[in-house]
């Protein structure tokens, strides 16, 4: 297993301002861990999409930020947690262009392309947790190319 490099930080996602704060904190943590500019930009963009989903679709929640280490490689795990309605049809939700609201339907499917690993754990009626894991060098878990 990948050992946590530092304790997990919990950040609330309950407002517009919280989204901005979460983006800033993820940016700062990724910078400290040695992520390159492009990878940082992708990770923070994915963060913005997922945190907004937590807020808009999940009715608010929080994100758990955990710096990781495997050998010499640093990584970051982010879990976006809500206790909202959950996602009934995950395949549909992961489809480019599918939205149940007025969005573009690119958040979830796009975020998956921006990070190395994205896992959705959702139980209808009980909430959604989306966990992304990204490693600073692109190793040891390269993107598996699921499109």
């Amino acid at each position: 297993m990948h050992a946590p490099l530092a304790p997990t930080t919990h950040l609330p996602i309950g407002s517009d301002a919280d989204l901005a704060w979460v983006r800033q904190q993820v940016r700062k943590t990724a910078t400290d861990l040695g992520f390159g500019l492009i990878q940082q930009t992708k990770l923070v963009t994915a963060t913005s999409e997922l945190a907004r989903n937590t807020l808009v679709h999940g009715g608010g929640g929080h994100v758990e930020v955990t710096p990781l280490r495997a050998g010499h490689v640093c990584g970051l795990r982010l879990s976006f947690v809500d206790a909202g309605p959950g996602i009934r049809d995950l395949d549909l939700a992961m489809t480019d262009g599918y939205t149940s609201g007025g969005g573009l339907g690119l958040g979830l499917s796009g975020a998956k392309r921006l990070v190395q690993e994205l896992i959705v754990d959702s139980c209808p009626g009980r909430g959604t947790t989306v966990t992304v894991t990204d490693w600073a060098s692109g190793l040891p878990a390269p993107r598996t190319g699921t499109r």
Partner: peptide, 12 residues
């Protein structure tokens, strides 16, 4: 440039 690269990958 990093924003442009990210937008394309996002699909936007």
């Amino acid at each position: 440039p990093a924003v442009a690269i990210t937008l394309v990958e996002l699909g936007l």
